[in-house]
Nucleic acid binder design. Sequence first.
RNA 1: CGGGAUGUAGCGCAGCCUGGUAGCGCACCUGCUUGGGGUGCAGGUGGUCGUGGGUUCAAAUCCCGCCAUCCCGACCA
Length: 478
Amino acid sequence: MSKEITPKGEDYSQWYLDVVLKAELADYAPVRGCMVIRPYGFAVWEAMQADMDRRIKETGHLNAYFPLFVPKHLLEKEKEHVEGFSPECAWVTIGGGEELEEPLAIRPTSEAMICTMYAKWVKSWRDLPVLINQWANVVRWEKVTRPFLRTTEFLWQEGHTLHATEREAEEETMRMLGMYRDFYQEVLAVPVVPGRKTDSEKFAGALRTYSVEALMGDGRALQGATSHNLGQHFATAYGIEFLDRDQQRALPWSTSWGASTRMIGGLIMTHGDDSGLILPPKVAPYQVVIVPIPPRKGDWNEAVLPKCREVAALLRGAGVRVHLDDRDTQQPGFKYADWEMRGVPLRIELGQRDIEGSQCVLVRRDTRAKENVPLGGLAARVGEVLPALQRDLLERARRFLAENTRRVSSYDEFKQVMADRRGFLVAGWCGSADCEARVKQETRATIRVIPLDGASPSGPCVRCGQPATAEVYFAQAY
RNA sequence: CGGGAUGUAGCGCAGCCUGGUAGCGCACCUGCUUGGGGUGCAGGUGGUCGUGGGUUCAAAUCCCGCCAUCCCGACCA
């Protein structure tokens, strides 16, 4: 395996691909636009999934599973939804060697299927709310794909809920947006800007769409997760009705919210460096890797390995995910580079000299700082450094976000900054779709979000000069 | 779907202009060597040159078609 990767500064997008492939997170598959998530990458996904699944359940949701195929007539029930998704649908038209009477879409999202079932299940106000989540794969026939960031098939979770009132639905939408924000920050160490999408960017069929937006190392924004208040659109289209307390027929309000394997792309681009990936301890498949240092050929197995095994067991006992790299076919220097590429947060070097001094060398992946740690205090020290590293990654990413979020007052300044440095530009917007479209055409930047905690607009619309209705975040998006 | 480029070993490339037994680096295998930041040396395995046709005694090389991939735009989690 060649270990050289393209430096970030030379070609960011090549750097990203190099990390994905050389850290063995994923590989290209022999199918257009699809990737294989390799064991190391899948372990990262599983760690993310486990944490998010817990959060989803703690907020009262239950997991279920719905079919992959969506009959054409069901997908077509909600007009805006079908118009939004039909261009990127894959269709199955033959089954068992015979042409199907009705084509089946491979789900691009599951509103159609799930709402159809909800229409069967919900009869009374006592059946509400319905709080269901699904972990699944979906297919969207994208024209341009990149590993994790945009693939034809991807893995995600999609929550689908029904509520008796608009207020409850909006609360749910915001609760899950907050869940995503917290997950990004606490688990992935990625700071995000939560906010509402403009009409042109909202989900096909939604009343309102919210998202969390992160800023990547090249100054482009990545939509991290979305939460939609679907209003009564889907209940109407799929005939979901219930009798309320007053014995009146009523339409429930629905929400949906999702986050995908794209998060792994965001993780790579937020923390990685020219030596490869840097994983936050909370999602690292291995939080610590132990590299034994053989003193002389032949006797390292007797001298060093038992001590390394002892240290590994000690740390495992303290709840740390440890890997002992006992390959006797690779040299220490090779292993350092290898595990740095894969982003393991902490490395322990342990050789004869350390055993004699009853210590080891502890090295942080992010700063490469080395320290000698007495073996007696190792578990405690690791227990301090892992959370510190997690915090420092978030802190560093927050600084980057702050340094690359600029308030601009004139359109000339807007165009200038968007051309040289990109990042988030905060500016007034008059609320017209026309201004939004022109800015996109002229600068390739779109309105990522109207921030939730947005100050009331202080100036005019950055493009047309009319009074602004909001201060919004602009960026070029992935 | 428009504009540009590229398809030769697992990966990265040379060879093509000027047709004549398919090569280099990395990876992989074997042996020795080395071992606290990607050891070194020697030997070796592996390719219907994207694909179909044409020209020719002879095609990776020249000509035509097709396919695929990548980059830049329009669409998107």
